[in-house]
């Protein structure tokens, strides 16, 4: 009896050295991946490198910035040699400030109701659909969820957003901020984001003899095999670099 042909999902190649190997080729297309990390762990840089690599191959990319003004974001990312400002100038990478978007939608308030959430999801989806975005970063989804008053609404919000973006074939990185508690990082601020996301990439710090070393670990990735090892992450001028973390070098 013939075995069923093996099915390989199409991949969004991140272009980030080491990460595509960890993911056995890249992120499955249309996935919403939670990139969850403590402060200074390299989430924003990883997100921008992901977009820049897409822009280089002619993909339309978008970045929604909710935690820092886009002016500051672009100023900080320009120090990296992987980043080319002309991609922003030419509209290959579209950078949006969430507070400006909220202001345009009449959402400049501290708490969102269901209508507001629908408006926000619709706006993001509209933008993605209109300009044909195939790579999207929302930085950070945590600060958006702070405006949502309960867990159920957060779940609804993330589910609707993920579903809409997936339908449009857009691969999304949802940046999430977490705090490190007792040496073990939680994977999401509200606990629901990780359940909804198609994948979870955790960035954090490991302490070795008083020094903090950055690491990356793929905890979950639907639709593909992946490495679950911890990888040391270095932020170099040319972007993120990864290498397996020494097993004896991790103090719990």
């Amino acid at each position: 009896m013939l075995g069923a042909p093996s099915y390989e999902r199409d991949r969004c190649v991140t272009g980030i050295r080491g990460l595509d190997e960890i993911l056995r080729g890249g992120i499955p297309y249309g996935s919403a991946i939670l990139v969850s990390g403590t402060c200074g762990s390299g989430k924003t840089t990883l997100g921008m490198e992901f977009l820049m690599n897409g822009a280089r191959s002619g993909e339309a990319c978008a970045h929604f910035s909710a935690t820092e003004p886009s002016v500051k974001l672009l100023e900080n990312v320009r120090q990296f040699s992987f980043f080319d400002m002309s991609a922003v100038d030419q509209g290959l990478i579209n950078v949006f400030d969430m507070d400006v978007l909220f202001s345009w939608l009449g959402l400049d308030k501290s708490t969102f109701n269901l209508d507001d959430i629908d408006a926000m999801v619709k706006a993001i989806t509209d933008i993605v659909n209109t300009i044909g975005v195939t790579r999207l970063v929302i930085d950070s989804v945590t600060s958006l969820c702070y405006k949502v008053p309960n867990e159920q609404l957060i779940r609804d919000f993330l589910f609707k957003l993920g579903k809409s973006l997936s339908t449009l074939g857009c691969t999304t990185l949802l940046i999430a901020e977490i705090t490190s508690v007792g040496g073990t990082a939680h994977r999401s601020a509200f606990g629901v984001e990780e359940a909804i996301a198609d994948g979870i990439i955790v960035l954090g710090d490991v302490e070795r003899m008083g020094h903090l070393l950055r690491y990356l670990q793929v905890v979950k990735m639907r639709g593909t095999d992946h490495s679950r090892a911890k990888y040391a992450l270095e932020l170099t001028r040319s972007g993120v670099m990864l290498t397996p973390m020494l097993k004896w070098g991790v103090s719990d």
Binding site: S70, V71, G91, D97, D99, V100, L101, T130, I131
Partner: peptide, 18 residues
């Protein structure tokens, strides 16, 4: 009604809330 392409282009270039 959603955003038109020119709305989106303007939004992408607007760095500050009015």
């Amino acid at each position: 009604e959603g955003f038109t392409l020119s709305d989106i282009q303007k939004l992408a270039q607007t760095r500050f809330v009015e």
